[in-house]
């Protein structure tokens, strides 16, 4: 309790005194904060995050905006920063490419948050043929073409949906939940089928589809809260796509599966506890600077 209070007190004191520290260090080193970062940090999430932090806490409103808005023009932003900070490319040759790459990464993450939110907001709709086709495709891939007696039937529980119509299970995660299950099943069919078959264990198993949707919930919240920046800033210097986000999902689902069995749950009622424990573990891994969420099964397929 007390360490937490102290930590937050010190943090707010630091924010308050930061401009003064920055000014002193700038006088001593002759370099502004952004420039110092470019010299001190190697390529990776730590550098991009620090640049993001520096811009976010800048007293210049046009700098703050660069790490908040979706439509930032990166080239114009590079010119703006170089000019405002009076950084000469002839002297600090590495600064410009580093800044550009960081701005691209920062901006892509914001855009990714928006595209993913759009997908989540699309409710599963039985009258939407695209949705229905995806659902049937999921069935066919995971069951290897077993016949479905009717659109609404108890067979869906074999895949780990709650009842006779999977539609209601997509409630909070919308189309995103379906897209991610389908992506996993399509691209890593063998892994997904083996996880599904193991999940049927009467005592230690779990509901495959529902857990899959819960994992969408988990990665979605990590994306929104910014935890996944570590992964994306380390993984790509170019813009991450929705597929890249799905890949992170595949890893998390697969990793959770391993974690679940290693916890030796007595029965499915332990899901809430184990899910929370796993979430905390993942969050702390994402605090380490070199973390990339990728499993061997994903490298093999490339």
């Amino acid at each position: 309790m007390f360490p937490a209070i102290w930590a937050s007190l010190l943090a707010s004191l630091y924010i308050y005194l930061r401009p003064m520290f920055k000014w002193i260090i700038r006088r001593v080193t002759g370099k502004c904060e952004l420039l110092r970062i470019s010299y001190q940090y190697p390529n990776g999430a730590a550098r991009t995050k620090y640049i993001e932090y520096s811009l976010k806490h800048s007293n210049k409103r046009e700098f703050k905006r660069l790490v908040k808005e979706t439509d930032t023009n990166v080239e114009a932003a590079v010119v703006l920063v170089m000019k405002t900070k009076a950084i000469l490319p002839e002297i600090h040759a590495n600064f410009e490419p580093i800044l550009r790459q960081s701005l691209i990464q920062i901006n892509s993450y914001i855009r990714l948050q928006h595209s993913i939110e759009d997908l989540r907001l699309i409710k599963y709709d039985c009258d939407n043929t695209d949705h229905e086709e995806k659902l049937m495709k999921l069935w066919n891939i995971l069951t290897d073409g077993e016949e479905l007696t009717s659109r609404k039937c108890s067979q869906w529980t074999q895949l780990g949906f709650q009842g006779e119509d999977p539609k209601t299970d997509f409630r909070g995660m919308g189309q995103l939940g379906l897209d991610q299950l389908l992506y996993f099943a399509t691209k890593y069919t063998k892994v997904a089928r083996s996880m599904l078959s193991k999940s049927h264990n009467q005592y230690h198993g779990y509901s495959f589809a529902i857990v899959g949707i819960n994992m969408t919930d988990l990665v979605y919240h990590l994306l929104v809260k910014g935890n996944l920046r570590t992964h994306f800033y380390n993984m790509k210097t170019s813009r991450p796509t929705i597929e890249d986000f799905h890949e992170a999902y595949c890893y998390v689902f697969w990793d959770f599966d391993t974690f679940w069995y290693s916890e030796k749950p007595k029965d499915i009622m332990e899901f809430g506890r184990i899910r929370e424990k796993y979430r905390k573990k993942l969050v702390s891994r994402l605090k380490e600077k070199s973390t990339v969420l990728e499993g061997e099964f994903q490298q093999e397929s490339q």
């Binding site: 409630r171 857990v211 819960n214």
Partner: peptide, 11 residues
């Protein structure tokens, strides 16, 4: 309440 997923286990 707009991001709720099916409950496995309990809350």
């Amino acid at each position: 309440i707009d991001k709720i997923s099916p409950t496995l286990g309990f809350n």
